[in-house]
Design a protein around this nucleic acid. Structure first.
Length: 660
RNA sequence: GCUGCUGUAGCUCAGUGGUAGAGCGCACCCUUGGUAAGGGUGAGGCCGGGAGUUCAAUCCUCCCCAGCAGCACCA
């Protein structure tokens, strides 16, 4: 007589089940509706196959499509397996490796057989077709426990070198499982999975692209082809996602930058930005804003050299740790008598600064500093050059020349927490002014680091203390800190839910030491200051790129390159339009006139596409009455008001948020 | 840096082994029109750079450069 298993359900009831029964059996016992709806189970909190037998008395929660996070996770993981199966069905000899779910879908890393080229976009329709076949065949997905040797033998027999390698290295104490798809295909997988491929909606996925990816994420390893798909529970969700992607593409700052004539990039200076008048107007507004914020927060602005001798970079540690990202130049006047510039090879080396911090320490070191002077907050709109890997460059988001709203706070040990707290508050006001919400992450000590564990303990705890004191929540990222310091990172969420890393603060005890920065303490002795590296925008380039995408080009009036255009309907209104422009300019508004011989429809369209916030239309009527017809971007209606009212309105809207 | 794809007019893109086309934009002319494209005419291109194959290369091959997507890195 075997003992029955006690299965506790979320409503508090208990079902007694035969040994070997499964969550599916429980669902069936409860009712046919649930039996049909249940796609997986949470057993003692762990997501599991619906057909995996209970091992003991358990807490059970049945998972249905209404548990969207779990359902999506399962579906995407299954889509990945179906993808791998489809690729192998189409091209026998393809090696398979890994296929996880992602935020919006799934991917599978595969290696094409030796007798064909790597997979390309052109192969995707055929793969999709085969995937639909597999889904429609409704192949049962069955879990089986295998021994390590069984797995290794199978993978080696089939020439699956990557899988075999992985099977060898799976953790000792883990139960090793495979999942059968029908009777003819299987993959090594921890699971869980849906009961059969037919549980997937064949219209709810789409293969998106192929890309290279390294085996186990390491550049030294073989490069595989990663096939990306997006996967959902139904076609409606898929379409909604595809619409979101189109929306994101419309917001692409590279596209809008061209359309709005903000900046350009060209190959002769790839990775560095040519700012056009419109784009630099945005920059200047941001810079003026940030100067006011920093001035009020007790920072003093400095300007330091672009190029410094290599000896300086050796001392700061950059020469050793950062040289491959630095632009290095010979300190020699080249001999140009030959065809080209000739360098003797005996020159001393100089380097463009990739960071501002060493120069700031040098400023700090001038003269003798008393503890009474601390904290000293040195700010710089610091232009830095980093020779980034070519593949990393991306519009304004990742460039080789960029300007940081940088500052370094030199303070005593005892001042660190309060300085971090003040910075937390300052950063908060800035991000709010732009309408961003954010998450804070605390990046903890990396494997390779300078400094003692005691210092790291202290530095990490100081950041936590400041966060706690300000009532903020954060997420910790082990191993992600800089080699000299733990750091807080601000991750902004934009209007369509994407996140961007911008601001940071890092507490550093290494650089003051390397560059021998000291202050005289109350005791008359020399002490090391702590140095806080911090930025809020991060870089102007990236921040402007984020703003463009966040606002889809429709920048708030205070940032808009052109805040208003006065457009005439008939040339009889030209003189009045010029008068209006003069008054608007006198009121500090960035305004253009459009007196061209074009219809008003045409002008409205053009300035709307250029994302000008307000169009002031003037015809005969307005000229006679001293009014303007204001058409605001995004609205269909016009509002007629006196020129003075319009100026007041624009002046109000054009006031930067910190001056309101 | 790695893998794949791409590079044709200012922009978006067609196209062909016999030195090129569209739409938008631009210039000029007509039109003075009330809230998202009025009409006409015209000027723009060393078809990313270099080498090779060929009677002939924008097109095929190789190398380089840049862009895009991802990876790996990062503000």
């Amino acid at each position: 007589m075997t003992e029955l298993l006690k299965i506790n359900l979320p409503d508090g009831s208990v079902r007694e089940m035969e040994p070997g029964s499964t969550p599916a059996d429980v669902a069936a016992a409860i009712g046919p509706g649930l039996a049909k709806a249940a796609i997986a189970a949470r057993v003692d909190g762990e997501l599991r196959d619906i057909n995996r037998p209970f091992e003991s008395d358990s807490e059970l929660a049945l998972v249905t499509a209404r548990d969207e996070d779990d359902a999506l996770e399962l579906a995407r993981h299954d889509f990945a397996h179906v993808l791998a199966e489809a690729v192998q069905a189409l091209w026998p000899g393809t090696q398979i490796t890994f296929g996880p779910s992602t935020d919006d879908g799934f991917y599978y890393d595969v290696k094409a057989p030796a007798d064909r080229d790597p997979f390309s976009m052109d192969d995707l329709p055929a793969i999709e077709e085969k995937m639909r076949e597999i889904i429609k065949a409704d192949k049962p997905l069955r879990r089986e426990v295998w021994s390590r040797q069984q797995l290794i033998d199978k993978w080696e027999a089939e020439g699956e070198a990557f899988k075999a390698e992985w099977a060898r290295e799976l953790p000792e104490n883990e139960e090793l499982t495979v999942y059968w798809s029908g009777e003819d295909w299987l993959d090594m997988c921890r699971g869980p999975h849906l009961a059969s491929t037919g549980k997937l909606d064949p219209q709810a996925f789409k293969l998106m692209r192929v890309a290279g990816a390294y085996w186990r994420g390491d550049q030294k390893n073989a490069q595989l082809t990663r096939i990306y798909g997006t996967g959902w529970l139904n076609k409606k969700q898929l379409n909604a996602h595809l619409t979101r992607l189109e929306e994101a593409a419309k917001r692409d700052h590279r596209k809008l930058g061209r359309e709005m004539d903000l900046f350009h990039l060209q190959e002769e200076a790839h990775g560095s930005v040519f700012w056009h008048p419109n784009g630099y107007r945005i920059w200047r507004q941001l810079e003026a804003y940030m100067r006011r914020k920093m001035d009020k927060a007790g920072y003093r602005e400095i300007k330091t050299p672009q190029v410094m001798d290599a000896r300086q970079w050796e001392q700061s540690g950059h020469w050793g740790k950062y040289r491959e990202n630095m632009f290095v130049i010979p300190d020699e006047v080249p001999n140009t008598e030959e065809d080209g510039p000739v360098i003797s090879g005996e020159a001393d080396w100089m380097a463009l600064k990739p960071m501002n911090c060493p120069a700031h320490v040098l400023v700090f070191k001038q003269g003798i500093t008393s503890y009474r002077d601390l904290p000293i907050r040195l700010g710089e709109m610091g232009c830095c050059h980093r020779n980034e890997p070519h593949g990393a460059l991306h519009g304004l988001m990742r460039v080789r020349q960029f300007t940081q709203d940088d500052a370094h706070i030199f303070c005593t040990e005892g001042q660190v927490v309060e300085e971090v707290q003040a910075f937390l508050a300052l950063a908060d006001t800035v991000y709010r002014d732009f309408g961003f919400s954010y998450d804070i992450k605390l990046a903890l000590r990396p494997e390779q680091r300078f400094g003692s564990d005691a210092d790291w303990d202290k530095a990490e705890q100081e950041l936590r203390d400041a966060l706690t004191a300000n009532g903020l929540e954060w997420e910790e990222l082990p191993g992600e800190g800089a080699f000299y310091a733990p750091k807080l990172e601000w991750h902004l969420t934009d209007a369509i839910g994407r996140t961007w890393q911008v601001g940071t603060i890092q507490s550093d005890r290494v650089l003051p030491d390397r560059l021998d920065a000291t202050y005289v303490g109350e005791d008359g002795e020399k002490h090391r200051p702590v140095m806080l590296h911090r930025a809020i925008f991060g870089s102007y380039e990236r921040f402007i790129g984020i703003l463009i995408e966040h606002f889809a080009g429709r920048l708030p009036v205070w940032l808009a390159p052109t805040q208003a255009v006065v457009a005439t309907i008939v040339s009889d209104a030209d003189d009045y339009a010029k008068e209006a422009v003069g008054k608007l300019e006198a009121a500090g508004i960035r305004v253009d006139s459009d007196l061209r011989n074009e219809k008003i429809n045409y002008k409205v369209r053009e300035h709307s596409l250029a994302k000008v916030p307000h169009l002031l239309v003037v015809g005969k009527r307005e000229a006679e009455e001293g009014t303007v017809a204001v058409r605001t971007l995004g609205e269909k209606d016009q509002r007629v008001m006196s020129l003075e009212e319009a100026i007041d309105m624009l002046r109000t809207e054009a006031t930067p948020p910190d001056l309101r």
